[in-house]
Design a protein around this nucleic acid. Sequence first.
DNA 1: GGTATTATTTAGGCATTCCTAAAAGCAGTC
DNA 2: GACTGCTTTTAGGAATGCCTAAATAATACC
Lengths: 227, 227
Amino acid sequence: MPLSEHTESVQDYLKTIFDIQRERGRVATTVLAERLGNSPASVTGMIKKLAALNLVEYEPYQGVVLTPAGEKIALEVIRHHRLIERYLAEALGVPWDQVHAEAEKWEHVLSEDLEDRIDAVLGYPTTDPHGAPIPKRDGTLPPPHTTRLSDLQSGQSATIAEVSDHDPAMLRYFAELGLRPGVDVTVVAVAPFGGPLTVRLDDVEHAVGREVAGYVSVCDVTSASGE
Amino acid sequence: MPLSEHTESVQDYLKTIFDIQRERGRVATTVLAERLGNSPASVTGMIKKLAALNLVEYEPYQGVVLTPAGEKIALEVIRHHRLIERYLAEALGVPWDQVHAEAEKWEHVLSEDLEDRIDAVLGYPTTDPHGAPIPKRDGTLPPPHTTRLSDLQSGQSATIAEVSDHDPAMLRYFAELGLRPGVDVTVVAVAPFGGPLTVRLDDVEHAVGREVAGYVSVCDVTSASGE
DNA sequence: GGTATTATTTAGGCATTCCTAAAAGCAGTC
DNA sequence: GACTGCTTTTAGGAATGCCTAAATAATACC
Ligand SMILES: [Mn+2]
Ligand SMILES: [Mn+2]
Ligand SMILES: [Mn+2]
Ligand SMILES: [Mn+2]
């Protein structure tokens, strides 16, 4: 049953449920409503429809969890989205703060054939321009990164793994700093009382707010004295 | 007022009205319904909506004609469609019998920014893979070709200008014959009583039905003995 | 010119997806 | 264990875009 069996709305709901589920387990109506920009009442209605289609398990007042069928579709939509983001950035030079909006629309009308062609032209990439992993055709997706830049202690180094693509302005800020996936970062200082981190990127130091640093995931963390 | 101010349905109606208008002037409800695959009753309803939006002039029982505003939008949609077809064929190797279906969906979600990028990557092409002209950004579009392959007499030569993209099977047939825009063709014989034409393409002769030849437009017609 | 045929519109509905306002459930507090 | 505040659902409705069946207008024919 291909993606196109489901409406754009259904696809976006499933994709969003998948994202929230990764972060916080069971998905509450209000959280989903907030993320989608719809009213909670509308979300309740759609949730019932998804449950009737066996795409989510719904427990009234207790939120939803994706069924295997629902997860499969969610992963297909996410694959489309991230492949498209990558393609737009790489093949057409679209700035990384704009690829998300474009992909949000295109993801719903991409054929499987074109998906394969794009995948091949890009050389079967594994991440999107923000560092988020692209699900494989079979629906495989590596677990999310657990360490954030804001979790690092003074003196620790790491590699940027992923940045949040939820806010274009923040992406432009990251680009300015040279903060992008694959780049090495060192935490020079951490101010107390939730204050800013001083980080070194490309031998340049920057002060970044604690909250913003929470939108950056890192991997390969090492402490000052070697390991 | 950008394209996205109008629904996908409105965009497809305007595009289709434009096409029919080029062929036959005023656009009758039934013809439009037939082309869109909707019932005449549905088309009447939408026509009223388009008239209320000042996109068409509607005379009950007499069909519609695009207003300048409607024509502008139609040309934008057609520009999207043909640019996308060209891009899919050239950059992603999509076979020319499949580009239409893909473009039919993508045309509605293409941003102006991405349109410009695609245009630039392709080197500002003037025709789609089927030879149809791509409207310029300002809405300019050359007049349609008037001569069809089926209009040629025995002994006449011409250059293929455009082939109809309405039927994927026919496009595959054309591809097999080597019949594509830019290729020279010579009519070797014309069978009587509406019979087939014998045409030479790349020094190979083929018999093609009169009806099929009506779906091919030509230009630069010359008769056997020079001009 | 009247009748048959065809084209078009009107009437009434349905599916989808969203909304606001109001009711009801849930959970923590005292 | 009742109250309170927040979450969630229910009720009722709107917009869009499609449908079938029935009525009506236009046209073509004799
Ligand atoms: Mn989307
Ligand atoms: Mn992304
Ligand atoms: Mn379309
Ligand atoms: Mn075409």
